[in-house]
Amino acid sequence: MKILVCISKTPDTTAKIAFADNNTKFAADGVQWIINPYDEWYALVRAIELKEADPSTVLHLVNVGTADSEPIIRKALALGGDEAIRVNSDNSDSYNIASQIAAIAKEGNYDLVFTGKETIDYNGSSIGGMVAELLDLPYVSHAIKFDLEAGKAVVVREIEGGEETDKVALPAVVSCQKGMAEQRIPNMKGIMSARTKPLKVTEPVAADSLTSVVTFDLPPAKAGVKLVSADQPEELVRLLHEEARVI
């Protein structure tokens, strides 16, 4: 079994969101970077659990990013995985990024490609589906549970208003979310061994970019809260009914 886990670098969930260069770029100064939580907590940790259950499993990580991504790649390797590949690119177009991952996945002949369900910065939810289409593989999105049974993947995925259990032959692409695994913290042994694990850097393959960012902006500030006394909660209901007209 060969597994490829896609990891992306995102600002920490508490990072202040601001923009620079005339609102065309994220203001990265002083920002703490993390592994995209969906990629780390769910995709990577579940893949590590699969390797723990079957030590013959080969587990590789891939990141499409610049050298700035290396600290989060080392952190991912400290959690687990045999080696990492960084595709040296600063492209932010999903089709281009998916093309890079698909090229790595094809070359490495992986049985399983895991992604997070989305990144917490671009919120595209696109990479998994695009990689699957580029490789002409089945795609199970929004997985909350993943198991292997007799060479097939049994995946529970979220659908609107409930869950669906799917069975699919490998190879396949799966996007992962909450429920797949529990968050882990790297231990000292992991951190030490991550230093010597291979981190290969390759140059991107030629691929088109289909979209580009024109500008960023922040939502308008709220006008301020209208407080109602705790002694008269029915006044709140009246306001919601007559003023806001939402109930």
């Binding site: 999903s94 369900k117 939810s125 696109s126 990479i127 589906g129 695009m130 580029l134 999105s141």
Partner: peptide
Amino acid sequence: TTGKAIAPRLSV
């Protein structure tokens, strides 16, 4: 969830 599963494939 359906759109997120199909739209990226169609994009490609």
